[in-house]
Design a protein around this nucleic acid. Structure first.
Lengths: 216, 216
DNA sequence: GTCTATACAGTGATAGAC
DNA sequence: GTCTATCACTGTATAGAC
């Protein structure tokens, strides 16, 4: 997945085993370009230059600017959000576990890279309708399922009183997102520090427990 | 504000009193163009054509594409969100009032025009950092204050038990927004019907009241 | 496959006549 | 102020040599 050992069957003319490397270099350069300034601001010329190849080589690997853009979005979506999990948490210590989830979640969606990705997808989804689906499946849908599963486990052992775990999971995420996510998307909170992140997570957990904590 | 009576002091050469009308026509055409396909996809040529004027006339009224874009965003932001108010509601009938607020709020932010505006601002805020602030002040900030005020009134007469009205207002909006707003931004729910809107509002109110309803 | 060089289309913006 | 015609520039995409 990362890089082949440089010993391959073909070594014809110029760069034998570096073909995969070039494609990766192009993708990496494209990611930086697209995430940095959006679809319109990025130029194929600049991407080729940054990747250390010629423009014609870029077009040899990707059919055009749009396909390259799609490849970047799909790659980033799956790479960013693939690692989120709530399996290892203890449904017994509900407050602590929810706080952990909220912090992880905010840490994920407020990272500059995730914000940039989210921003660019929202901005260009009119031109590329497929991107919304790709992002949703890889990100929010996956995350919601993880939390829903955790809430079901907590409800099963009596830690929580949730009539509708699916809805409760959505609402927990909505509370955690709060307004800080929107503010980051709008570039109003340039650098949301760890303290703001923690405060947002604690507020969300507090209100969620006010609503759904099991009666003692 | 809408249109002058067509009798003005000047009637020199070509279109005497239509100057204001032309500026408005340009702004209207620009709104449609920008909101439809974003900043990059819109061209000054197409805007001029749609407004029924020449490109040079557009540049006579607006310094350039960026200034025209800013004018569109500022105009739309204030026009869309200016009417939101929660003053006339009864803090005694808390469930009903909150539901009304939530429905109004969702109706506002899920309208195709508001979604298009929100989308374009998020997408272009990297290039135009000022837009985020303009939108925030006109929209989310205003709305939150309205609701915070209502919650304070409700808390004063004992309908609610809110330790932090500002935070509670944020959380109420976050619950109402839920995931449907994100889905609309991502173009996954092409047309969120009134029934989905109502359901989202009711879920938000129910959970909010579970957390903050005064004990009977 | 990869490079250099170039054709081509479309854009924002302007000069000058009326 | 308004228009027609045009400029300079940028970015996509390809042709041909290696």
């Amino acid at each position: 997945m990362h890089s082949k050992p440089a010993t391959l069957g073909q070594r014809n003319s110029a760069a034998p085993a570096a073909a995969r490397g070039k494609a990766e270099a192009i993708l990496a350069a494209a990611e930086q370009a697209f995430l940095g300034g959006g679809f319109g601001a990025a130029s194929m010329d600049a991407i080729a230059r940054a990747a250390g190849v010629s423009k014609a080589t870029v077009y040899a690997h990707f059919a055009g600017k749009e396909e390259l853009f799609g490849a970047v979005v799909a790659d980033q979506s799956q790479r960013r959000f693939g690692g989120f999990s709530a399996e290892a948490l203890d449904p017994g210590d509900i407050a602590r576990s929810l706080l952990t989830i909220a912090v992880r979640f905010l840490d994920l969606i407020l990272s500059p890279e995730a914000i940039a990705l989210n921003r660019i997808i929202i901005g260009e989804v009119t031109r590329f309708p497929a991107l919304g689906q790709v992002f949703w499946e890889a990100g929010p849908a996956r995350t919601r399922v993880q939390i829903e599963t955790f809430l079901r486990r907590a409800a099963a052992i009596g830690s929580l009183d949730v009539p509708d775990p699916r809805l409760a999971a959505e609402q927990f995420l909505a509370l955690a997102r709060g307004e800080i996510h929107q503010r980051c998307l709008l570039r109003l909170d340039v650098a949301s520090g760890p303290e703001a992140l923690h405060a947002a997570a604690e507020s969300a957990v507090a209100t969620f427990l006010r609503a759904f904590a099991a009666q003692a």
